[in-house]
Amino acid sequence: MGALTFELRNAPDQRLDLAPLTPTRLEGLKAKEIEALAIGTTRVNLTVGDAFTVKGKDAAELRFVGTDGRCDKIGAGLTEGAIVVEGDAGAYLGAGMKKGKIEVNGNAGVLAGASMAGGTIAISGNAGERAGGINVGETLGMKGGVLTIGGNAGSLLGERMRRGLVVVAGDAGDYAGGRMVAGTILFKRGVGPNAGYGLRRGSLIFVDEPKDLPPTFGDCGVLEFDYLRLLEHWLRANGKPINLGARARRLMGDMAVLGKGEMLILA
């Protein structure tokens, strides 16, 4: 039988907490047991069986079909396996995940990939604010892995990120890479105001020059970076073909804080 599939019957009248639906926790459970799992977030009890039609058996790969923006915590804390979401995802998509793969063929809510430590998340649509940012109760944002956003990203993308790679194909909101500790964000289009605010270390790579650059970044001029060749090569090898070239204008900052971060604006 195919992937264990959860098809949303109709729009739920409360937000759903789908954190229990991960390959690790569903492995070996019978269909009845899965349907009995509680996923409600209000005083009205709600089980998997109430909201979803469950099909398939293979718990190593989960499919969510027809989900909407109220389906929270899909793949949160994921440690293995793959999750495909055919629909939108709510808040906390893959938040705190350590390993595995999440693919969303729609939009994701706030805090997608927040404080994730490893694995990959690919969102084909937009991501809400604080994607790759700080999960509730954490002090750091994304700590590893790869987060790709096919559409636009909300504000505070990769806030206080520590490690890992974020790729945004669309526009990013304000304070992108804010207070970043380290890591890499690749912006294929524009960013809002205050990108790199409080950047300590880490790289913000821009295909297009941002409209307004913070005054606390210092210019190093246009230079050649073998690192960009390395990154381009890796992106190509991993199904994310892009032309970075090797030349970029390097801005160092944020000089208001540690100042060892950089913006690489492709030349």
Binding site: G144, R163, G164, L165, A182, T184, R201, S203, L223, E224, F225, D226, Y227, L230, L231, W234, A237, N238, K260, E262
Partner: peptide
Amino acid sequence: MSKLVGGRRFWRIPVMDGE
């Protein structure tokens, strides 16, 4: 600067002709 690319760690060391 340290950069992790695909799980491998690389160091970018500033030198007179770049890095």
